[in-house]
Every structure is written in C-alpha cells, then in structure tokens.
C-alpha cells in the first residue's frame, strides 16, 4: 500500500465530474488550467475519462438524476482514487439542503478524501488542497 500511496505524490491525472453545480466551481477548475494558475506546470492534467483518472474532482449538490451516475463514475475509476469535494455545495449542500431534488452531501454517496470549501473556492484554494494532500501522502509514505 505504501508504494501505491507514493505514486500520488507525482503527476496527478484529474477527472472533473459536475454534479448539479452552479458552474462556478467548474469555471474555477478550468481557470486552474488557464495561464494564470496553470496546474499543468505541477504535473496535473485534466483527462477525458474516469478510467484514466487518479483524482476525481466533484462539484455541486448531487441531485436525484445524477446520483447513480456519480456512483458509476466512481466505480469506473482505477483504485485507489482520490475524491475531492470542490465547493461548499459538494461539502455541505449549503442552501440546496432544503431542496426536494438533492440527495445529501457528496460524502453520503461516495467516500471523500479532501474537502475544499468556498463558494466558489479560488483556484489557489483548489491547488492548495491538492498540495496538502500530496504533502500528507509524502509524510505517510
């Protein structure tokens, strides 16, 4: 297990799954790969399929139509896979907690490793969240 954990300290392949978000966290994630923040210089890259992903970035308050799809996406990823709840909606659902159509925060649906709160979290916060995770893995390994 130690050796697998060490792999997560190098370049991470990231899949971005939007589960009923308001788009804000999503554009901040795209901002991360735009010139100002550019996470590709840190070895992270957005990939097109969950099967290639080490990290699953999930945004939004999961609704009833999406809930089994996010479970499927999680099942398709190669394990171990780091699940990151980006934004307050994924962490705690904020104002949409009272909605008839949402299914509880993300950690009730799939196991979550990192929470990045904020509405929306700044790109710096997203990068800092992943950096903290990498650091903790290094210390653990």
């Amino acid at each position: 297990m130690q050796s697998i954990d060490n792999k997560f300290t190098k370049s991470l392949f990231v899949f971005h799954a939007a589960c009923s978000p308001c788009n804000n966290c999503d554009i901040e994630i795209l901002d991360c790969i735009a010139p100002k923040y550019d996470i590709e210089r840190l070895g992270m890259q957005l990939v097109g399929s969950p099967r290639h992903a080490d990290v699953l970035l999930v945004t939004g308050a999961v609704n009833k139509k999406v809930v089994h799809r996010i479970k499927m996406i999680y099942e398709q990823t190669a394990k171990p896979c780091v699940v990151v709840a980006v934004g307050s909606c994924a962490c705690s659902e904020i104002i949409f907690r009272e909605s008839y159509n949402t299914c509880g925060p993300l950690d009730k649906i799939i196991p979550v490793d990192i929470y990045i709160p904020g509405c929306p979290p700044r790109p710096e916060a997203i990068i800092a969240g992943l950096a903290k995770y990498i650091k903790s893995r290094k210390n653990a390994g």
Partner: peptide
Amino acid sequence: LGYIHRGTEKISEN
C-alpha cells in the same frame, strides 16, 4: 436535461 435541477423556485418560496 434535468441533471442540474435543484428546485430553486420551490426553495425561494421558503
């Protein structure tokens, strides 16, 4: 559609 429906109009009534 329907993947992003969160019932905003109904929440607004409360």
